[in-house]
Simulated assay, not measured.
Amino acid sequence: MLKVSCPVNALDAQLPLLLPDEVCAPFVRRATIVLDRAVRELVGAIEADTVPDLVDRTRQAEAPWLSSNLCEALTRFHDDQVGNSVELSISWAATTPVLQEIAGAPSIRIQEDYFPRIDEVHRALRPGEEENEDTFVGTVERLDGEMQPDGRRAGEVVLALLLPDAETVRARTSLSADQYADADKAHMTDNAYVKVKGRLHPGRQPRSLTDVATFEPLWPGA
């Protein structure tokens, strides 16, 4: 269970969020309402099998509640190996009244099998992605290799790669025994990074990184 608390008046900002019924509410309150409505709309569309309609409405809206970034953030709460669901429940501060229809709304449950659909919405709302062949810097997040006949491990690892736009994406790739040994050491070393040259494919995270030409550890202080 993860609990996050944010003071209602944490930010003294007046940014344009189209919530006419909450126009006088603090920014944090309005942002939280937008989050609540966006996730409810997303889950409702999945359950009603109207995701294409939701995507079309969101694209046409002047100030949509739902965004590609929000969908991506939701997918990061899901672990393929664990197969978990996510439940979102919001408690509203009594110091700032909220509409009863919002305050009395039930928690939102995102079932495990909803996450592939959420990722579809994430990709549909995002500007077109293409394959990206480049050199990336990142960290080793998981080692899934297998023992080879020569007694050394090789195979799949999951990396967290930092892209030029400051976005971090998880990517799965396959490494040779020598590269895997370097990945293992980097994974076990604080503040160690890796530099990898390959082809990053678009799609659901962890994305696919193929044609790995180089894989080098970057040790702290080096």
Score class of each variant (00 low, 15 high):
162 L>W: 14
55 V>G: 04
92 W>H: 02
79 D>V: 07
86 V>A: 14
156 E>G: 02
157 V>E: 01
86 V>L: 15
138 G>W: 01
7 P>D: 10
184 D>E: 15
45 A>T: 14
94 A>P: 06
4 V>G: 10
186 A>M: 04
167 E>K: 13
19 L>W: 08
137 V>N: 06
7 P>L: 05
175 L>A: 02
93 A>V: 07
216 E>A: 10
201 H>R: 12
91 S>C: 12
151 G>S: 12
79 D>R: 01
14 Q>D: 08
140 V>D: 00
126 R>L: 10
74 L>Q: 02
139 T>L: 03
190 D>P: 14
43 V>A: 06
177 A>V: 05
171 A>W: 04
203 G>F: 06
207 R>C: 10
166 A>T: 12
124 A>H: 02
212 V>E: 02
107 S>T: 03
5 S>P: 03
202 P>D: 06
2 L>M: 09
119 D>W: 14
183 A>C: 04
3 K>H: 13
177 A>E: 14
67 S>T: 09
138 G>S: 06
129 E>A: 12
181 A>Y: 02
68 S>F: 01
204 R>M: 11
178 D>G: 02
135 T>K: 14
21 D>V: 03
151 G>N: 08
100 Q>R: 14
72 E>H: 09
67 S>Y: 02
134 D>H: 12
161 L>D: 06
67 S>C: 12
67 S>D: 00
214 T>G: 06
57 R>D: 15
199 R>L: 14
2 L>F: 14
34 V>S: 09
214 T>D: 14
191 N>P: 10
76 R>P: 10
179 Q>T: 07
147 M>P: 08
82 V>Q: 15
161 L>I: 04
31 A>I: 04
143 L>K: 03
129 E>T: 05
93 A>W: 05
41 E>T: 04
132 N>C: 08
98 V>C: 09
190 D>C: 03
207 R>Y: 09
60 Q>I: 05
60 Q>E: 15
149 P>M: 11
57 R>L: 11
103 A>T: 10
30 R>W: 12
213 A>V: 05
75 T>Y: 00
98 V>M: 12
100 Q>P: 09
89 S>D: 15
143 L>T: 02
216 E>V: 10
196 V>G: 04
112 E>K: 13
166 A>V: 04
158 V>H: 02
169 V>D: 08
112 E>M: 08
